[in-house]
Design a binder for these strands. Sequence first.
DNA 1: CAGATACTGTACGGTACCGCACAGTCATGT
DNA 2: ACATGACTGTGCGGTACCGTACAGTATCTG
Lengths: 263, 263
Amino acid sequence: MAKSSSTRTTPAWKRAGNNRTNASARKDGDGNYVHNEILLALPRVEVEVVLPKLEFVRLKLRQVLHEAGETLKSAYFCDSGMFSVLNVMPGGKSVEVGLIGKEGFSGTPLVAGFRTSHTRTVVQGDGAAFRMDADALRSALPKCPTLERQLNRYAQLLAVQVTQVAACNRLHDVNERLARWLLMTQDRVGSENLPLTQEFLAQMLGTRRSSVTVSAGTLQKAGLISYTRGNVTIHDRRRLEKASCDCYGLLQLQVKEWQSQDA
Amino acid sequence: MAKSSSTRTTPAWKRAGNNRTNASARKDGDGNYVHNEILLALPRVEVEVVLPKLEFVRLKLRQVLHEAGETLKSAYFCDSGMFSVLNVMPGGKSVEVGLIGKEGFSGTPLVAGFRTSHTRTVVQGDGAAFRMDADALRSALPKCPTLERQLNRYAQLLAVQVTQVAACNRLHDVNERLARWLLMTQDRVGSENLPLTQEFLAQMLGTRRSSVTVSAGTLQKAGLISYTRGNVTIHDRRRLEKASCDCYGLLQLQVKEWQSQDA
DNA sequence: CAGATACTGTACGGTACCGCACAGTCATGT
DNA sequence: ACATGACTGTGCGGTACCGTACAGTATCTG
């Protein structure tokens, strides 16, 4: 990952490839590589429409991008790090229902023409994203059929994910869900070092903090992870996968189908 | 509801109104009223494109419209009765993640260009729907912007619903969920008489059959419902709402926002 | 009508998790 | 250095629900 220190810059891709395979050669104005797969998949014409409306933003750990019930001011194309999508209940309890990595974006209601977010979106790890104003996105869509298609497809994929998570939340116990969550997170942030408090994990899994303590303790004793004050390190992915429920595999599979299946 | 006895007929709407408010005056070829709100909202031009591709089908209780993992052969615009959207786990356990009434349709992945269903969709009560071939739908979309918009919007609404249900499944107990489910179902089928076995309810709620027995028994003793061999009757909606969790109210609210908020 | 099949009520031990509370440990600022 | 706050480990009683099994009753079938 590039090491630009500026907090906000407007990107300007250098020309490189046009299709997905070598698209990662694209860079923004600072010479940073662009990672977001939706943006990378855009044809040149659409890039030229979208580009001037994108703003590269660095995101802080635990920053809230969208609050449940509030108006969506912009969409965020995740470029590094990862977003958690939470459902917040009256009373304050929350459950994570989806994860967004560089394959996606946050603000799905916008593509269907809605303006309010029904979920809270928070940032995991330190990350970066391309921010686009809601109105700008809206006005760009008619001019950018590929973009629109990609966004619709991703919204659908996210729905599939949420569906799976809904069932998982109902049927699997904390241990399995914790393992699954760690794996999915690692897949998206790319590091085996995750900055997470147990309190925070509890919010994700929709459980008590002390349940997380116990569950994580078990994993730690078994040597799958280690835990120190706000930091989880994953040691043994293989065995972690065994400890998790099938949902992890299923969710991976669904993403793959999504990438392969064209419309 | 109309009482045509034919099992399959091709509809041909009589012209009536064009906008939503008096759209319910539209009828199909047999003189049956059309109830599906998506179809009713279509402008005349699009009706003319879509109409010849629609087939009116009567649906049997518990009929499976889409199986999880299989190819989507068609979309179903729900006209009466209701559809349940289920997530099926390896091992056979299932959880309901969404409900579709005459406000919606089944086959959301199609509008994003996907061909496989990630969920099972089953019919509640006896109902009817307008069936449309997957390919036909696909080819109609470019010609029918309003239809496309409506379908996208509904897909998004369903995603919102699934999100709420995901959290509800995690945080609320069987009693509350059962009450919620009965209310939501009644809203959609319109009758206070619901043909349901406890085994089936258990699949919906993702729980044991005997948990349903106990929970339903409680509601019955309190006089909110009565239960006889595959049939639930709702007696006291008011108190049933109190017995259910907030999710019921929230879900209602979300539908209303959806209907009011235009893009 | 008998027998089979479906559906419901109930019970029992086991366990995963809840709400809560409290003590221990590490990090930070003044 | 010390206090303050954030984070983690642990425990305890209570409960909701699980898996399973079995018996009772309605509905269907020949």
